[in-house]
Design a protein around this nucleic acid. Sequence first.
DNA 1: CGTGCTGTTGCTAG
DNA 2: ACTAGCAACAGCAC
Length: 275
Amino acid sequence: MPELPEVESLVRGVRKQLLGRSFKSIKFLRPDIREPIPVKRIKEILIGQKISDVSRRGKYMLIRTARGFLGVHLGMSGRFIESSPNTEMANHTHALFCVNDRVEYRFIDPRRFGRLFSVEKGELHSHPFLAKLGKEPLEDEHVALHLYQESRKRSQAVKIFLMDSTVVVGIGNIYASEALWRARIHPQTKANLLSLAHYESIASSVTEVLREAIAHGGTTLKDYRDKDGNPGYFQTNLAVYGKEAKPCPSCRQMIAKVIQSGRSTFFCPFCQCAK
DNA sequence: CGTGCTGTTGCTAG
DNA sequence: ACTAGCAACAGCAC
């Protein structure tokens, strides 16, 4: 379920642990996950090289050395876990990043929707996976205006629009529903019918829910874990996601579920009636 | 034991 | 040009 708050929580933990250290060896247990892994280049970039930064762009984690970056995407079920080398190997462990004889990081991803890739120095804005990413909701300025402008030509539902990573990054199925509930906007409203004021409300709801989720270590429905293998705790604070037929925390009416582009959307038909 | 869901992303067909 | 649908995969609830 990794959306922005989950990746941010992971990145913070990994950064704390790995900054200034380096990988002694790397082992790939299969040559591909979602696509072939650039094994040779990743080793060249990382092995013996001091880690100078661990950061996040959208839902991608980036581990930097003087030679370039390792890119990590968790897909739907990925984990990047700090382990002891003698811990039993979990099923679907695809790569081992060894720090020393006591500590290694394991990339585990049953569904193999994740990715491991290399990014060259200076390629941060041109790498195929990173080039088309939209604004960072927690860091960039004028997100509301950007959403408003981008929405002018789009008649798709606002929930789908919010999940479009070429517009704004980090918002997946859970936080899209949650943010629209907070903004009291119906998820099926066409994006181009909303005003700048609506997008100001949406942008602040997005910021708010993402920040709160990060403060709780993210949301764990099933698979997400931080680097220590611990789940997040924000799921107990979800207002609408997964709450079909449960009472709306605001008005006590029943939460509804609809399918948009094949994915479940949850909302309160009474609070979010503007459509 | 099928069938239909599940957190993502990018390609394709319309 | 935009958008809905699907594929990639494993696991689990029903």
